[in-house]
Design a protein around this nucleic acid. Structure first.
Lengths: 252, 252
DNA sequence: TAGTGGTCTAGACCACAGG
DNA sequence: CTGTGGTCTAGACCACTAC
């Protein structure tokens, strides 16, 4: 069920550098070893070394440029794809005890909005649920999820949604989650949301609609996450000429 | 003042593919040409072709994998570094007429918070301003910016802050903006913010603290952007095994 | 099984930063 | 000027997909 590749050479180099940075062996502002030195140390050609550096650059850990050594920026947190897609994963990673309470779960026909988002005919079955998510017992978000029946929905129905990470389970079952698009907006809490989250109605919340696709671009999931605005921050690190990893932090 | 490199080969290949995708020559779900075909077409080895593909992948335009052709995901918007750092640039890019009104601008001593953020001694001079930003005449955000005196602040003081993009100007003057970290949280509008933005006090707003660094990790700017939550959405596209570019949309 | 992208090697030249 | 990272070539082998 889990094939488990052995790490490639560039991954080992990247991990070595990540460790060295996070462990404080290199302080922010310090120059990294040169590519030539890393080639020697790992008995490698420049290809893997450069791929490792590119990875760290895209994670926002280092800054590179012609003619100068690469420099450590800071030990800022970068989330894995799994942490970005699974609330359980990132809560755990941040050191909080994740919890969840399913309000309801159902197989139901798709309305117009859902059908459009999931690119299925209106009325086709989808699997939906509402869950409240907790960190150390404090409610932090409301999760309103909708899955295509195939391949994910059927597995969701068969899963105990109070027992932990659905997304982790689905990926382990071989569901091909490839990419996610999200948007983020600030809204005022409705009566219902306020009650779930233990805040005053009208309090500022982060609303995050999110769509998960497989590798061929077929949407598998269309969900809304509703975060307490006073508790959660979304972070981003954008580097010139490079893509931007991002992370989520939580204050309790 | 603007050196203007000529494009590298991998950039030409990437641009060719971007054009082909955006122009509809390839629909979402379609396979791209194989790497071998692109090598022939551009009389190139695999290196540049793969670098171009990696770029598009990190922009969220395509999805790749062993054994299969790369597939077009969709023509989703990806912002350049400049658009991410300059409000003027992204408003223009979205087809809106950017506007700004400076409430005040000053050279002043740094308080404890600012000194810590900019990593300078408390009391050292910084340059600060408050601006309200408009899109097609509608107020959409409040900008509270603070710069180190060197190298950016001095240039900010000498610039007409009602005339357009400060960040573009600074970069043209050679200021080394290398990377940005942002966080995002939902807050309720204060009286003052509400008045600036033309909303009710207590309305949900997006608060985005942001810090801009040069290539060596020295913070040059520490600012707060305050967006109307009902008007602006932040978007992200995260691909498995890849970094996440992101974009900002606006509804008017 | 044929074709694909993922990884790696061993060279090369260049642009640029720094002493 | 020396050393650095950025770009490119021309090969090679492998893991995987699709047929």
């Amino acid at each position: 069920m889990k094939p488990m590749r052995q790490p490639q050479q560039y991954e080992e180099i990247a991990e070595f550098l990540r460790q060295a940075i996070r462990s404080g062996q290199f302080e922010p502002g310090d120059p990294l070893p040169s590519e030539a030195e890393l080639c020697e140390r790992f008995t490698s050609s420049r290809g893997p070394v450069r791929q490792a550096m590119a990875t760290l650059r895209s994670e926002g850990l280092i800054s590179s440029g012609r003619g100068r050594r690469s420099i450590v920026l800071d030990a800022s947190r970068t989330e894995s794809f799994e942490a970005m897609i699974s609330v359980t994963a990132w809560l755990t990673q941040l050191g909080y005890e994740p919890g969840q309470k399913t309000e309801w779960i159902a197989r139901r026909p798709a309305d117009a909005t859902l059908a459009a988002a999931l690119e299925i005919p209106e009325g086709d079955p989808v699997v939906s649920y509402h869950r409240v998510r907790f960190a150390n017992g404090t409610p932090v978000m409301v999760e309103r999820a909708n899955f295509r029946l195939e391949p994910a929905g059927r597995l969701v129905l068969a899963f105990d949604t109070d027992s932990g990470s659905i997304h982790r389970h689905l990926m382990q079952q071989g569901v091909d989650f490839n990419n996610v698009t999200r948007t983020l907006l600030a809204v005022a809490a409705t009566e219902e949301d306020a009650q779930y989250l233990g805040v005053e109605p009208g309090s500022p919340l982060q609303l995050m609609p999110m769509k998960v696709y497989d590798h061929s671009g077929t949407p598998l999931e269309y969900s809304y996450y509703l975060y307490r605005g006073d508790l959660l921050r979304l972070g981003m690190n954008t580097i010139r000429g490079n893509p931007s990893p991002l992370w989520v932090e939580i204050d309790l």
